[in-house]
């Protein structure tokens, strides 16, 4: 199993915003771990999905050369549970970004199984990312980029994200 919590990017505007979707399946094991007979997507994994959407956005801004890590969940407010058969729509917007990190405003929408239903707001998540090489000067990190590994390169190909290209 790979730690991918988004299926596809549907919008990617470098340095500004990105949207990704995830189809929620009853076959996912974690759905059954929280409450008996009441499968939902755990909130922690919704945050992870937003972090992956935003992480690609922040990483792409510097050509995936820097080690970008999720440093802080500033706020996470959940308005609605997410159930099997629904589609999560993650939208991450860059609030601020500089050479030390970035702050992200995220909105999580959910589209119910019926295809023509409008997207409902399920959560609002604010995240902070840190460029660790810039922020933790003096600490030793491996020279290779352990954040944007070959798996991320693979994702980049799958999603069709190329620097400065809007998809």
């Amino acid at each position: 199993m790979r730690w991918y919590w988004i299926d596809k990017f549907v919008e990617f505007t470098p340095k500004q915003s990105a949207s990704a979707v995830k189809a929620v399946s009853l076959a996912e094991e974690h759905m059954h771990d929280l409450y008996p007979d009441f499968p939902i997507v755990p909130h922690s994994l919704i945050i992870e999905g937003m972090a992956q959407t935003a992480g690609m956005l922040v990483g792409e801004a510097r050509g995936y050369k820097e080690k970008v890590i999720l440093a802080k969940i500033n706020r996470a407010t959940f308005h609605r549970l997410v159930r099997p058969g629904e589609t999560i729509v993650y939208t991450a917007t860059v609030e601020q970004m500089n050479d030390t990190g970035a702050s992200i405003r995220g909105r999580v929408g959910v589209r119910a199984a019926e295809t023509d239903t409008p997207v409902e707001l399920a959560a609002e998540i604010e995240l902070m990312f840190s460029h660790i090489d810039n922020n933790l000067a003096g600490m030793e990190f491996p020279a290779h980029n352990f954040v944007f590994t070959e798996h991320f390169t693979e994702l980049q190909r799958v999603f069709g994200i190329d620097t400065n290209v809007r998809i």
């Binding site: 440093a71 802080k72 500033n74 030390t100 902070m128 922020n135 933790l136």
Partner: peptide, 14 residues
Amino acid sequence: ESIDFLDIMFRLEK
């Protein structure tokens, strides 16, 4: 903590 300083600076700028 160390990461909070970056957060504080972003918020002050805004």
